[in-house]
Simulated scan of single mutants.
Amino acid sequence: MQRPAYVRWAEYKLGNRSDAEEAVDQAFVELAENWPLVLRHEKPAAYAWTVVKHRTIDAGRAGRRRRGLIDTAAFETVALHRATDPLGQLEDSLATYAAIRSLPERQHDVIVHRYCLGHSVSETADILGISEAGVRSTARYAKKNLARALQQEGVTDGLAD
């Protein structure tokens, strides 16, 4: 049910559709091989998300992909085209992306799905295997952490709702 969302996230992380599909397919094979174990988990969807995330991270490491500017390109492109001060916007975008990457794992996942990939609260909850209230609460804490980090970096723009 979540394959399109998983592939989209993996593509966001890996920068390549075929690598993303391969990572998600590997995760599905692992889930199928361990299906009785998956079903014993209190939240099978959360377990599945963890497997997908780990296979994607493994694929990135195997491909020796460099984090950083490649990962931020899609994140900042639209903002740069609209900016009156492109260099200032680039600095702000890089600081924002760095702040997102430094969030605790659950907060990072929620922010990426909600604001970078544009999933709704309901979609994010389904993908991550958590409640909608959990998504809203986690997003609220994440935005507070981001605001604090960005304020320290001198970035005045925060994440919009």
Results as ranks from 00 to 15, higher is better:
Gln2Asn: 15
Gln2Leu: 13
Arg3Asp: 07
Arg3Glu: 06
Pro4His: 02
Tyr6Gln: 07
Arg8Trp: 05
Tyr12His: 15
Lys13Ala: 09
Leu14Glu: 00
Asn16Val: 00
Arg17Val: 00
Asp19Lys: 13
Glu21Tyr: 04
Ala23Asn: 03
Ala23Gln: 03
Ala23Phe: 00
Val24Asn: 05
Asp25Phe: 02
Gln26Tyr: 08
Ala27Leu: 01
Phe28Met: 12
Val29Met: 06
Leu31Met: 06
Leu31Cys: 04
Glu33Val: 14
Asn34Glu: 10
Asn34Thr: 15
Trp35Phe: 14
Arg40Thr: 15
Pro44Asn: 00
Ala46Asp: 03
Ala46Asn: 04
Tyr47Val: 12
Trp49Glu: 09
Thr50Trp: 07
Val52Asp: 09
His54Met: 12
His54Thr: 15
Arg55Gln: 14
Ala59Val: 04
Ala59Glu: 11
Ala62Trp: 11
Arg67Val: 13
Arg67Asp: 11
Leu69Val: 13
Leu69Gln: 08
Ile70Gly: 13
Asp71Trp: 03
Phe75Ser: 10
Thr77Tyr: 13
Thr77Leu: 12
Val78Asp: 13
Val78Ser: 13
His81Trp: 10
Ala83Cys: 07
Thr84Gly: 09
Asp85Lys: 10
Leu87Val: 14
Gln89Pro: 05
Leu90Val: 12
Glu91Asp: 12
Asp92Cys: 01
Asp92Phe: 01
Ser93Pro: 02
Thr96Tyr: 03
Tyr97Leu: 06
Tyr97Gln: 11
Ala99Trp: 01
Ser102Gln: 14
Ser102Glu: 14
Leu103Trp: 08
Glu105Ala: 11
Gln107Lys: 09
His108Gln: 15
Asp109Pro: 04
Val110Ile: 01
Val110Thr: 00
Tyr115His: 15
Cys116Ser: 14
Cys116Ile: 15
Leu117Val: 00
Gly118Pro: 06
Glu123Gly: 11
Glu123Ile: 07
Thr124Tyr: 03
Asp126Tyr: 13
Ile127Ala: 00
Gly129Phe: 02
Ala133Pro: 07
Ala133Phe: 07
Val135Asn: 01
Val135His: 02
Thr138Met: 02
Ala139Met: 06
Tyr141Thr: 14
Ala142Trp: 00
Lys143Arg: 14
Arg148Gln: 10
Ala149Gln: 12
Gln151Trp: 09
Gln152Trp: 07
Glu153Leu: 08
Glu153Met: 09
Glu153Asn: 06
Gly154Glu: 03
Gly158Val: 00
Gly158Glu: 02
Leu159Asn: 03
